[in-house]
Computed example of a mutant assay.
Amino acid sequence: MAIQLKQVAEKFSMSEQELTLESLRAFLIDKLHLLDSERRARCAKFGVTSLEEMDELIRKGLVEEENIMEDFQNVDYLTARIGWIRQLLEKL
């Protein structure tokens, strides 16, 4: 079933462009929340809240690098994606 953007926009008294921007904003916010939840969960495994705190654990020798590296890399990736999404949202 195909939904026509024009019909939806008309029902909400919006232009197609406004509907598209609102849809994109909602999509990005949803992705932001999902990525942030995953980042927080990976950090929580080590009792920290950020990539910097994870790095501190490694530098102080409080965790073995091999035990944290996969989560560290994922948190780094997630942090970068979150930053990118926030930049996109600022432009909308």
Rank of each mutant, 00 (worst) to 15 (best):
E18C: 04
E10Q: 09
I3G: 02
T20P: 00
R25F: 07
M14Y: 07
G47T: 08
N67S: 15
R81K: 09
E18R: 14
N74R: 15
L5N: 08
I29Y: 14
A2L: 15
I58N: 03
S37I: 00
R39A: 06
D55L: 10
L34G: 11
I3W: 14
W84S: 11
T20A: 11
E65V: 12
E22L: 11
L35M: 14
E18V: 08
N74G: 01
G61S: 06
I82R: 04
K60D: 13
D55H: 11
I3K: 13
E10D: 13
R39T: 06
Q87G: 12
L92R: 10
Q17I: 06
E10W: 00
G83I: 07
I58Q: 05
L57I: 03
L32S: 01
L62H: 08
L88C: 10
N74T: 02
I68V: 15
D30P: 05
A44K: 05
D36E: 13
E64I: 02
T20G: 02
K31V: 11
E52V: 09
I68C: 12
L28S: 09
D76E: 12
E56Q: 11
N74K: 14
M1Y: 13
Q73G: 09
A44I: 04
L51S: 02
E90N: 15
R81I: 07
C43V: 09
W84M: 06
A26G: 04
D76L: 10
A44F: 05
L24T: 07
V48F: 03
D36W: 05
Y77R: 04
K91H: 12
T20E: 14
R59P: 10
V8A: 02
M69N: 10
F12K: 00
L32T: 07
D71F: 03
A26D: 12
T49P: 13
L57K: 01
A2D: 15
C43S: 04
L28Y: 15
L24S: 04
L5P: 07
I68G: 12
E22P: 00
F12H: 04
D71V: 02
S23L: 07
Q73H: 14
E16P: 00
R40M: 02
E66H: 13
G61Y: 09
R81Q: 10
E70T: 13
K60L: 14
G83M: 00
E64P: 00
L32A: 12
T79H: 04
E52P: 06
E52R: 10
L35A: 09
A2E: 15
F27V: 12
V63R: 08
V75N: 07
